[in-house]
Measured scan of single mutants.
Amino acid sequence: ALNRGDKVRIKRTESYWYGDVGTVASVEKSGILYPVIVRFDRVNYNGFSGSASGVNTNNFAENELELVQAAA
């Protein structure tokens, strides 16, 4: 299972961040479909780089994520 702070690569092909590595911000335990919230260094097309207006978190299912580096 994934944990907060883990570095993960995104495998959801239609995602803006496909192939990117993000950090797990939190994992919901309530049984929702996309329980893993991942935070990225770059914002998506809703904002400009360096601006706070873009979105830099997204929810994924565990099977859409590949663990790159476990949290220390």
Score class of each variant (00 low, 15 high):
5 G>I: 00
70 A>H: 10
70 A>L: 09
12 R>K: 08
24 V>T: 01
33 L>R: 14
38 V>E: 00
68 V>C: 06
56 N>W: 09
16 Y>V: 05
16 Y>A: 05
1 A>G: 11
52 A>Q: 13
19 G>A: 05
47 G>H: 11
37 I>S: 09
23 T>Y: 08
44 N>L: 12
50 G>K: 03
70 A>G: 08
31 G>D: 12
62 E>P: 11
29 K>T: 14
49 S>V: 08
25 A>F: 13
63 N>M: 07
66 E>P: 03
38 V>S: 00
67 L>I: 07
62 E>T: 10
17 W>D: 15
23 T>K: 04
63 N>T: 13
71 A>E: 10
1 A>N: 10
28 E>L: 15
47 G>T: 09
6 D>G: 02
12 R>V: 06
1 A>F: 13
48 F>D: 15
50 G>D: 13
22 G>W: 06
43 V>P: 14
3 N>E: 09
53 S>A: 13
20 D>Y: 12
68 V>M: 05
56 N>G: 04
18 Y>L: 02
12 R>D: 06
6 D>K: 02
41 D>H: 13
29 K>L: 11
2 L>W: 06
37 I>Q: 11
10 I>H: 02
64 E>K: 00
37 I>N: 06
6 D>Y: 03
44 N>E: 11
4 R>S: 08
67 L>D: 00
32 I>C: 13
42 R>H: 06
42 R>K: 11
67 L>S: 02
69 Q>L: 09
19 G>P: 01
12 R>M: 09
59 N>L: 05
66 E>V: 06
37 I>Y: 06
35 P>W: 14
19 G>E: 05
56 N>L: 05
13 T>A: 12
9 R>F: 06
36 V>W: 04
54 G>C: 15
14 E>V: 15
50 G>A: 10
21 V>W: 03
40 F>T: 00
58 N>S: 15
45 Y>I: 15
7 K>G: 00
26 S>E: 11
36 V>Q: 00
69 Q>M: 12
50 G>N: 09
31 G>S: 11
27 V>L: 06
32 I>Y: 10
62 E>K: 06
37 I>H: 07
32 I>N: 13
33 L>P: 13
46 N>C: 15
38 V>I: 04
39 R>W: 08
62 E>D: 07
23 T>A: 03
29 K>A: 12
63 N>A: 11
38 V>A: 00
63 N>K: 07
54 G>M: 05
70 A>T: 08
52 A>G: 10
33 L>D: 12
55 V>N: 06
13 T>Y: 10
58 N>D: 15
3 N>Y: 13
70 A>V: 11
63 N>D: 14
3 N>F: 12
44 N>M: 15
27 V>S: 02
13 T>M: 14
21 V>A: 01
10 I>F: 02
60 F>P: 00
61 A>S: 10
46 N>H: 09
48 F>M: 14
23 T>S: 04
32 I>P: 06
42 R>N: 07
69 Q>K: 08
60 F>W: 01
17 W>F: 04
19 G>Y: 04
71 A>Y: 14
8 V>Q: 00
69 Q>S: 10
49 S>E: 15
62 E>G: 06
59 N>C: 14
10 I>Q: 01
53 S>V: 13
16 Y>H: 05
59 N>H: 12
19 G>L: 10
48 F>R: 03
35 P>A: 11
57 T>Q: 11
27 V>P: 01
51 S>T: 11
37 I>P: 00
54 G>A: 07
40 F>V: 01
8 V>I: 01
28 E>K: 11
36 V>D: 00
53 S>R: 04
37 I>D: 02
14 E>K: 07
40 F>C: 03
5 G>S: 01
41 D>P: 05
30 S>N: 10
55 V>I: 13
69 Q>E: 14
24 V>W: 02
44 N>H: 11
41 D>S: 10
8 V>E: 01
23 T>D: 03
64 E>Q: 03
43 V>T: 09
31 G>I: 10
43 V>R: 05
45 Y>L: 15
16 Y>M: 04
8 V>G: 01
44 N>Q: 14
19 G>I: 04
68 V>K: 01
67 L>R: 05
1 A>H: 13
29 K>W: 10
46 N>D: 15
20 D>A: 07
8 V>A: 02
65 L>G: 00
22 G>V: 02
22 G>R: 04
56 N>F: 08
50 G>H: 07
42 R>D: 05
64 E>I: 02
1 A>Q: 12
8 V>R: 00
61 A>V: 03
65 L>F: 02
19 G>H: 04
60 F>I: 00
67 L>F: 07
18 Y>E: 03
46 N>P: 14
5 G>L: 02
46 N>L: 07
10 I>V: 14
34 Y>F: 12
42 R>L: 05
27 V>Q: 02
62 E>W: 13
65 L>T: 12
72 A>W: 13
43 V>W: 15
58 N>V: 09
10 I>K: 02
64 E>V: 03
20 D>G: 04
39 R>C: 14
39 R>S: 08
30 S>W: 10
13 T>R: 13
17 W>G: 00
45 Y>S: 15
16 Y>N: 04
14 E>Y: 10
52 A>V: 10
39 R>G: 04
11 K>A: 06
53 S>G: 11
68 V>P: 01
31 G>P: 09
55 V>Y: 09
16 Y>R: 03
38 V>G: 00
45 Y>N: 15
9 R>M: 08
70 A>C: 12
13 T>L: 12
40 F>G: 00
59 N>A: 14
69 Q>F: 09
57 T>K: 06
19 G>K: 06
3 N>K: 15
55 V>D: 07
69 Q>P: 07
54 G>D: 05
57 T>C: 14
37 I>T: 13
37 I>G: 03
2 L>H: 02
60 F>N: 01
33 L>V: 08
40 F>Q: 00
49 S>G: 12
69 Q>A: 11
15 S>G: 02
38 V>C: 04
66 E>G: 02
12 R>S: 06
10 I>A: 01
61 A>Y: 09
57 T>E: 11
50 G>S: 07
70 A>M: 10
23 T>M: 07
53 S>Y: 10
49 S>A: 09
24 V>I: 08
2 L>A: 04
5 G>A: 02
50 G>Q: 07
7 K>R: 12
8 V>D: 03
56 N>R: 08
32 I>D: 12
58 N>E: 15
47 G>D: 15
55 V>Q: 08
42 R>V: 06
62 E>C: 12
60 F>Q: 00
66 E>R: 02
23 T>V: 11
47 G>Y: 05
52 A>H: 10
51 S>V: 09
4 R>Y: 10
7 K>T: 07
31 G>M: 10
60 F>G: 01
67 L>Y: 04
38 V>K: 00
17 W>M: 02
19 G>C: 12
47 G>L: 05
66 E>M: 05
35 P>K: 13
23 T>L: 06
23 T>R: 04
29 K>R: 13
29 K>M: 10
43 V>E: 08
40 F>L: 02
70 A>W: 08
55 V>K: 06
10 I>C: 14
41 D>E: 14
21 V>I: 13
51 S>I: 09
29 K>C: 11
29 K>N: 11
23 T>G: 00
37 I>W: 15
6 D>F: 04
41 D>R: 10
16 Y>F: 14
58 N>L: 06
12 R>H: 04
28 E>G: 10
59 N>K: 07
34 Y>S: 04
71 A>Q: 07
44 N>A: 08
71 A>G: 08
15 S>I: 04
36 V>K: 00
26 S>V: 08
11 K>P: 01
43 V>N: 05
40 F>I: 02
4 R>K: 11
57 T>F: 14
29 K>S: 14
49 S>T: 13
66 E>D: 07
72 A>D: 11
56 N>V: 06
30 S>H: 09
72 A>H: 11
39 R>N: 05
43 V>C: 15
3 N>H: 12
